[in-house]
Structure formats: structure tokens, C-alpha cells
Amino acid sequence: MITLYGWGTPNGRKVSIALEELGLAYEVQRVDIMNRQQFSPEFLALNPNNKIPVIVDSEGPDGKRFTLFESGAILIYLADKVGKLLPASGPAHYLTLQWLMFQMAGVGPIFGQMHHFQRYAKEQTYSVERYTAETHRLYSVLEGLLAGNEFIAGSEYTIADIAVYPWVARFELHKLDWSTLPNVKRWYDAVGARPAVVRGMEAL
């Protein structure tokens, strides 16, 4: 059994989607970040960086209890555990990791800052404009990529798609013109129609 400590954020939902896609037994322990539960001593014992998500796998490496934080690391761990959603070797393996890092280093931080300034700091015009422009630039990268790929890392659905999808699912904050992003929209609709993705999004 895997325990997922999370909240209904894109980073939390990456993990719940992966767990559903991989068919792993799990339970959810909600960490109410709006009420600062991530700063509780109990949670800090799991992640001293006070961020969700965290997993605790009762049957980790060598059959021992294993705790892991950082959503990208968790996705790789879960994929390796089951042997799915991350090609085992060759170029496809590294391309999947490349686009996972693109999400971790670009989509997540930039979209997250945009969400923050849109919601809580609208008077900071420069900040809103800066992160909106960078968000749209990242969408243009995805649009060009998906013009030639069915999925983000190529022809296969992988943890790279799982990492990006919950962030794009907050598109209402992104001031998009979907008519300029037909390939992203095609990908978004296809991923969002997967039953495991629906369950994973609803789990948190």
C-alpha cells in the first residue's frame, strides 16, 4: 500500500494520476496547505522542505518502508516500480526524462507564479504580464512539439504527459486562445479522457 500525502494542486494530482494509471493500491492523506498543515511536525518528519506531495510506500526497495518527496522523483519511482510509463532504455527513456524536467523546471514554476499573481497580486502589473508572457511561450513550445508527436515524449503516453497535464488543466487562468493551440488542445482532450486521469484528478 502506498500513502499519498497531497492536496488538490497540479503537483499533487500528478502523483494520484500516476498511481491510477499504474494500478497501484494507495490511500490519500490530505494535507491542507491552505491551513498550513504542511508545516506541522508530523508532515515535516516526512518532508523537511514542507511541500506536497509525499509518498510512503510500505513495500519499497528491498521490501522496506520508503518515503519520497518531489513530484518528479515520485513519478520516476512509481514508473520504475511497475515498469510502465517510462521507457526502460534508449532515446525514448531520456526524451521522457527531458520533457519531465521541462515540466519541473519550466511549466510548474512559471505556471505556478502566474496562478499566484493572477489570484493574489493583480496590482503588480509587471509580474502578471511577465508570467503571462512566459506561460504563453511555454505553451508555444508544447504546440510545436505536439505538432509532430502524439504525446509529449513521442508516440507513447508517459510520465511526461502526466506531469504536464494537471498544469494545463488550469488553463482558465492562462488567458489562452485555444484556436492558436490546436495540437495542445488535441493532446489535452485525449489525456483528459483517460479513465485513470479522471480518477486521479478526482482523488485530490
Rank of each mutant, 00 (worst) to 15 (best):
G63H: 15
V28G: 05
A121Q: 11
Y5T: 03
L138P: 02
P195N: 07
K64Q: 15
P10V: 05
P182F: 00
V107T: 07
H116Q: 04
N183Y: 00
Y120Q: 07
K122H: 12
Q29I: 15
A190C: 01
M1S: 11
E129V: 09
H136Y: 14
Q29R: 13
P195H: 13
F39P: 01
A79C: 15
V164T: 06
S127L: 08
V197G: 04
T9Q: 11
I52Y: 00
M1Y: 06
G12M: 12
W178R: 09
R65Y: 08
A203R: 01
N35H: 15
V56N: 06
R36V: 13
E123F: 13
Y26Q: 10
N183C: 06
F43L: 00
P10A: 14
F66W: 00
F111A: 00
M34K: 14
D57W: 06
L22P: 10
Q118H: 08
Q113W: 08
G6R: 02
T158R: 02
G112P: 02
V82D: 04
P41N: 01
I33C: 03
V141K: 11
L204Y: 05
D189S: 05
I152Y: 12
I110S: 04
E20W: 01
A92M: 12
M34I: 10
L44A: 03
A163T: 06
Q118E: 09
D57P: 12
R30A: 12
L19M: 10
L85T: 06
T180I: 13
F66H: 04
K81V: 03
I76H: 07
G200P: 05
N50A: 07
W7Q: 09
S127Q: 08
G23W: 00
A169R: 15
D189E: 07
R194W: 02
F171H: 14
E143R: 01
A133D: 11
A163V: 07
Q113N: 10
W187N: 01
E134F: 14
K84M: 05
D32W: 13
I76K: 06
P87R: 03
L173C: 11
L95C: 13
Y131W: 08
K175F: 13
Y157D: 11
D32E: 14
G108T: 04
M34G: 12
A147T: 14
G106A: 03
T9V: 13
A147W: 00
N149Y: 02
A160Q: 10
G148H: 14
V28W: 01
A79D: 09
I110E: 03
W178E: 13
Y126E: 11
L75Q: 01
E143Y: 02
F111M: 01
I17Y: 02
Y126V: 08
I162K: 06
A147S: 14
K51Q: 11
G108H: 05
I33N: 02
A18N: 10
Q103W: 01
P53L: 03
F151E: 08
R119D: 11
A169K: 14
D57A: 05
L181I: 05
G23I: 00
D177T: 13
L24N: 02
A121L: 08
R130C: 15
I2D: 03
S16N: 01
V191S: 11
Q37T: 05
A45V: 06
R30F: 13
S140R: 14
T158H: 08
L44C: 09
Y126S: 11
Y157E: 12
V54L: 00
I110T: 07
V191K: 04
S179G: 02
K185D: 07
Y165V: 09
K64H: 09
S40C: 06
P109K: 03
M201W: 02
V107L: 04
L100A: 07
